[in-house]
C-alpha cells in the first residue's frame, strides 16, 4: 500500500479544505477504499478521516426521510421509519454486502463506491476509468458481469450499489457541501454516464462532501420492494436487481417507480416503463410490458446477453411482489 499521512477532520470546513487538496482521499467506513488502496488502485498521499463529523442521524417526518451521510448501512436498514415507510431502502441495504460490512459502511460511502469491474481493480490491465486513455479490457474480455445499459465505447462497468438503485427510484436528493456552500442534486443526476470520460463518475467537485440523502415521502414509497438476483444467495453483487414502488387506487396504478441495478453503468431509472404503467391494472401482462420497455435500449456484450431477459424477469417479479404487498 502506498504510504499516506492520516488526518482526522475536526469540522466540515476543515474536511472540505483537506479533501480538496491534490492527493487526498476521504475515508469513512473504509470498506471499499481500503480494498482499492490494498490493490494500488487508489494511492492517496493523505487520508482524511471524516467519521468525527456529526452526519450520522436518521430523521423521518411528514416531508420525508433524511439519512446522514455517515449513518451506517445496518442502522438505516434497521430503523423502523425506514422499514415501515420506505421498505425498498431497507431491503436494498439488507441485500448488500455482509453484516460486518454493513456495520462499517456509510450511506455516503455507499454512493461513492467504485465499480467491481475486475479490470478496474487490476492495475496490470488497461482500464479507461482507472487510467484514462489506456483502453477498456472488458469490451473484448470477461464481460459476463458488465452493463447492458448506459455503456460506451470506453467503459461498460456496472455501478455496484444496491442502495443507490432504491434511492434513485424514490427520487432522492443528495445534499452536498463544499467550499462555496451547500447544494442539492437529484441522485439521478449525481452519477454520470461513462461516455468518453469514464474516470468522472459523479458531479462532486474537489473538496465537496456528501452531507445527507433526502427522500421525499410518497404513498408509493410504502409499497416498494427491492429484488436482487445474484450468482449466490447472499454476500454477492447483483447480476440484476430492481427497485420498484407502486401506488394502486381503484384497481389501477396511479404512480410507479422502477429502477434497475447490476445491468447499467449508473443507478438506472426506467421512466418510460413507469409511464407505461400509469392508469393500467397491476396484472402480469402490464408488468411484462413495463419490463420490455425498461430494457428496450439494452445492448449485450459477448457474455452478458442473459442479463437482458434476467433483468426483465426481475422487474416483473418485483412489481408482482409490490402489488401483493399491503
Amino acid at each position: 500500500m502506498h504510504p499516506f499521512a492520516y488526518r482526522r477532520a475536526q469540522d466540515a470546513d476543515a474536511a472540505s479544505a483537506l479533501a480538496g487538496a491534490a492527493g487526498s482521499d476521504v475515508i469513512a467506513g473504509g470498506t471499499d477504499l481500503l480494498q482499492l488502496m490494498k490493490d494500488d488502485v487508489r494511492r492517496p498521499n493523505r487520508l482524511i478521516d471524516i467519521t468525527g463529523l456529526p452526519w450520522t442521524r436518521i430523521e423521518s417526518g411528514p416531508a420525508g426521510l433524511r439519512l446522514g451521510a455517515l449513518a451506517r448501512m445496518s442502522d438505516v436498514a434497521d430503523a423502523s421509519a425506514v422499514r415501515d415507510n420506505y421498505p425498498v431502502i431497507s431491503e436494498a441495504l439488507l441485500a448488500s454486502a455482509s453484516p460486518q460490512v454493513r456495520n462499517m459502511a456509510t450511506i455516503g460511502g455507499n454512493l461513492m463506491q467504485r465499480t467491481r469491474c475486475v479490470y478496474f481493480r487490476d492495475v496490470a490491465t488497461a482500464c479507461n476509468k482507472r487510467a484514462p486513455g489506456s483502453g477498456c479490457s472488458a469490451l473484448d474480455g470477461e464481460n459476463r458481469l458488465h452493463a447492458v445499459l448506459g455503456g460506451s465505447a470506453d467503459c461498460v462497468a456496472t455501478h455496484a450499489s444496491d442502495l443507490a438503485v432504491a434511492l434513485v427510484a424514490l427520487d432522492a436528493m443528495v445534499l452536498l457541501r463544499g467550499a462555496s456552500g451547500e447544494r442539492r442534486v437529484p441522485l439521478d443526476a449525481f452519477h454520470l454516464l461513462p461516455g468518453d470520460t469514464p474516470e468522472r463518475e459523479t458531479v462532486l467537485q474537489p473538496g465537496e462532501l456528501i452531507v445527507a440523502v433526502e427522500v421525499p415521502a410518497a404513498p408509493h414509497a410504502r409499497r416498494s420492494h427491492y429484488l436482487k438476483i445474484r450468482d449466490r444467495a447472499s454476500f454477492e453483487f447483483a447480476l440484476a436487481s430492481a427497485a420498484v414502488a407502486l401506488e394502486v387506487e381503484g384497481g389501477v396504478i396511479r404512480q410507479s417507480r422502477i429502477a434497475l441495478g447490476g445491468v447499467a453503468t449508473k443507478p438506472w431509472r426506467a421512466r418510460a416503463a413507469e409511464a407505461l404503467l400509469a392508469g393500467r391494472p397491476p396484472v402480469p401482462a402490464t408488468f411484462v410490458a413495463a419490463a420490455d420497455e425498461a430494457l428496450a435500449g439494452a445492448r449485450p456484450l459477448q457474455q452478458n446477453g442473459f442479463k437482458i431477459e434476467l433483468a426483465k424477469r426481475t422487474v416483473v417479479r418485483a412489481l408482482h411482489t409490490a402489488a401483493q404487498g399491503a
Binding site: Y6, I27, G30, T31, L34, Q35, L47, D49, T51, S74, S98, P99, Q100, V101, N103, M104, F235
Partner: peptide, 24 residues
C-alpha cells in the same frame, strides 16, 4: 473483507478488522 476470518467487535458491533485502520 470477503471471508470474515478477522471478525472482531468494535464498540460492540461486529466488523472485519482487515478493512479497519488501527488509527480509526
Amino acid at each position: 473483507g470477503a471471508c470474515g476470518a478477522c471478525t472482531v467487535h468494535l464498540d460492540g458491533r461486529r466488523v472485519v478488522s482487515c478493512l479497519t485502520l488501527a488509527a480509526m
